[in-house]
């Protein structure tokens, strides 16, 4: 008869190097935190004072406005460009390709300055029938292209060029059989794109798209060259006056961190939404995990007490 080991005690495997590694990293983290807290030159008081100052908040709102508008317009235009690129018409394909080529090859800074100085190239902008004298609308370029318009134009077109590629990649990742099945069922082309292909493409699109949006949040700081008073330009104006350069840069940085963190939370839940059907069972959200953790530990504690 085989030996019965059921009365033996199980001793868990030991991982001494894991503990050493943990200790080293913990020490490092502690040192950084300590220096941040105790080095007076960080001037946390100044940071706190300016963090919620009206001018900074106004700048923050401008940054959010720029991000939202150029992000949405950029992705809408990018979607159209992606569809053009995938179409059967050689003209649409080459126009889309050229658009991405130009806007991905030129520095955003140059694009921005170019839009702002469009009035130098074209004094008036008008809408009419080409090659005739019919005009429905005409305006001085400098009036039409404000700092805000130049900023939105520059960010949107640049964003569109990148998001077109991201969306195209997502669409290509969807199995051809899906389109075929939808076509065989008589589902119209637009519905095939929006109901069948896009939701599946979203899984491939979302992680990169959020990278782009987060890049865009910080990318908006480049419009300081147009003297547009978004977050970054605002703190520059302030520190030029008060000479508290580092604390004010820290104010801007902290706000960028806050925006990015909020976006990351959104990303988690949106990705989770689109993973419906792609995984057998959805993973628990952090909240659900925490609840489960406390529930099971409460049970364990109760059991321990009753023993």
């Amino acid at each position: 008869m085989a030996t019965d080991y059921s009365s033996y005690r199980v001793v868990a495997a030991k991982h001494p190097w894991r503990w050493v590694g943990t200790a080293v990293v913990a020490l490092g983290v502690l040192a950084v935190a300590w220096s941040l807290a105790t080095n007076p030159r960080w001037e946390w008081g100044v940071v706190a004072q300016w963090f919620t100052a009206q001018s900074v908040i106004n700048g923050l709102l401008e940054t959010l406005k720029l991000t939202a508008i150029s992000g949405i317009l950029g992705f809408v235009l990018g979607f159209i460009l992606a569809l053009m690129r995938l179409s059967a018409s050689p003209l649409l394909v080459s126009v889309s390709w050229t658009f991405s080529w130009i806007f991905r090859s030129t520095p955003l800074l140059v694009q921005m300055l170019l839009w702002y100085n469009l009035g130098y190239l074209y004094e008036k902008i008008s809408l009419g029938i080409p090659f005739t004298d019919v005009r429905f609308f005409e305006m001085q370029t400098t009036t039409l292209i404000s700092q805000f318009a130049a900023a939105v134009l520059g960010l949107t077109l640049n964003q569109a060029a990148y998001s077109a590629e991201i969306i195209r990649g997502g669409i290509l990742s969807v199995d051809q059989g899906q389109l075929e099945a939808a076509a065989a069922l008589g589902i119209p082309a637009w519905r095939r794109s929006t109901r069948i292909v896009l939701p599946q493409a979203m899984r491939a699109i979302l992680p990169t798209a959020f990278n782009e949006i987060i890049g865009l949040v910080k990318g908006t700081s480049i419009v300081y060259v147009l003297a547009y008073s978004e977050l970054f330009y605002t703190v520059q104006v302030i520190y030029n006056r008060t000479q508290q350069v580092l604390p004010l840069l820290l104010v801007a940085t902290l706000w960028y961190v806050v925006i990015t963190s909020v976006l990351s939370v959104f990303q988690y839940y949106i990705e989770r939404h689109y993973s419906k059907g792609a995984v057998r069972n959805l993973p628990l959200t952090p909240l659900q995990k925490a609840r489960k953790f406390f529930a099971t530990h409460a049970v364990a504690n109760n059991r321990a007490r009753s023993l």
């Binding site: 059989g177 599946q200 059907g277």
Partner: peptide
Amino acid sequence: REKEILKQRTEIGMVFQNFNLFPHLT
């Protein structure tokens, strides 16, 4: 045209080797 072809297809059902169900729909 595409629209009329789609209408014709509704009279012809097709079942594929790889099912081709839409995975994101129940």
